[in-house]
Nucleic acid binder design. Structure first.
Length: 372
DNA sequence: TCTGGGGTCCTAGGACCC
DNA sequence: TCTGGGGTCCTAGGACCC
């Protein structure tokens, strides 16, 4: 895990490993289908991430819960075709532990139920702390010094001590491991606080022309994301740096600036990003990555009065809305501003091993041949 | 030659207010 | 001898998540 492909070529060859580029369109679509399948059986579902959901099962009779969990797996497998595991418990943190056990230990056949305190007493000692939600490597190192190694040790820790050691989130997790829920289901998607578009280049960038194209295209994406989430901002941060893994001469820099008024207009975002980038760019370096970040997002509705006249602003908003819907229908980047460069620019991330986007692109739809 | 891309929350300390 | 008692906002850095 985490190894760059070029470092393990020999292993890949020897073990006949198939290599795939990431395929976010496919993942997003399958995620939605899984989520739809879950909703078809359980009314209250929090979609937590692209591959995890929390389901409220309190309305079901206690005896129905496990059969329901198996039926959910069966339906997702039948409808979407991918395997899933279910963890059942009184809190989110314990449900994640249960899911971990369901996934790692074949004897549970994909469903692990931790509702019973005695069962928890048996199983929590077998789960390492690093596997518990909210405890990463830094916490694990602190806990190891105190001899705390398993989820059971963690549950036995005084919440006040956990809090002193790992802030309020650590304290909360200890309660959750004891079966006391501190994390309610979140059924409305929280409004986003920041947007970032950052990429490593497919090939090192050495010219301002290429850097400018990259920044313009990331700024375009950032503005699109803002419009999709119906938010706007008055500030922008741009950064660029060289490769940090090799011995290339090192350069890393970033800068931020404000718009005269909140905006999510691609033209304005691109212009400011490019202007900032021009200040940061130094000749003579091999750049590996750059990015555009926006914080302090506000709902579109509360935008400050703009520099543009209201009429002009309205027209521009309509124009970008039209561009968005064209791109939604005809594919991203079909209509774009000129400065973002050609669609096949060499700085773009390579995706040589990408599987077809079977379910989201007409051109990549699987073909079936029937012989009579 | 080649090393991912997004996010959130929390805390401490400084500056400032009345 | 004794030196107030609250607040807010901002920033940087750390830790964690998928």
């Amino acid at each position: 895990m985490g190894d760059p492909e070029f470092k393990i070529r020999e292993l890949i060859r020897r073990e006949n490993v198939r290599v795939f580029s990431s395929n976010y369109a496919l993942y997003g679509d399958l995620s939605r289908r899984v989520s739809d399948s879950l909703h078809s059986m359980v009314p209250t579902v929090e979609t937590y991430s692209i591959d995890e959901s929390f389901l409220k099962l309190g309305e079901f009779h206690s005896r129905e819960v496990e059969p329901l969990a198996r039926a959910l797996r069966e339906r997702v497998h039948r409808w979407v075709g991918i395997p899933t595991c279910v963890g059942i418990a009184p809190t989110k943190t314990l449900a994640k532990v249960a899911n971990f056990l369901a996934k790692k230990r074949p004897q549970y056949r994909g469903v692990c139920d931790l509702r019973d305190g005695r069962v928890r007493g048996e199983l929590l000692p077998t789960v390492p702390v690093e596997e518990v939600w909210g405890f990463g490597s830094a916490s694990a190192a602190k806990l190891a010094k105190l001899g705390i190694q398993t989820a059971a040790d963690l549950a036995a820790l005084e919440p006040e001590n956990a809090r002193a050691l790992m802030t309020v989130t650590g304290g909360r997790m200890v309660y959750e491991l004891r079966g006391i829920s501190c994390m309610p289901l979140e059924l409305v998607e929280p409004t986003r606080k920041g947007i970032a578009v950052t990429r490593s280049f497919g090939n090192p960038v050495t010219t301002w022309q290429e850097m400018r194209e990259a920044l313009a295209s990331y700024a375009t994406r950032a503005a699109e994301k803002m419009r999709r989430h119906k938010v706007a901002s008055d500030n922008l941060f741009v950064f660029m740096h060289t490769n940090t893994f090799n011995t290339d001469p090192f350069y890393s820099n970033g800068a931020s600036a404000r718009f005269s008024a909140t905006t999510n207009d691609t033209g304005e975002v691109v212009a400011l990003a490019v202007r900032l980038g021009e200040r940061l760019f130094r000749d003579g370096f091999r750049y590996a990555k750059c990015g555009v970040m926006i914080t302090e997002l506000l709902p579109e509705a509360v935008q400050q009065p703009a520099l543009w006249s209201e009429l002009d602003r309205e027209r521009r908003e309509r124009a970008w809305k039209t561009v968005d819907s064209l791109n939604a229908t005809l594919g991203r980047g079909t209509v774009r501003i000129l400065s973002s460069g050609p669609k096949d620019a060499t700085w773009k991330l390579r995706a040589e091993h990408r599987s077809p986007r079977w379910t989201t692109r007409w051109a990549e739809l699987p073909k079936v041949q029937a012989k009579m």
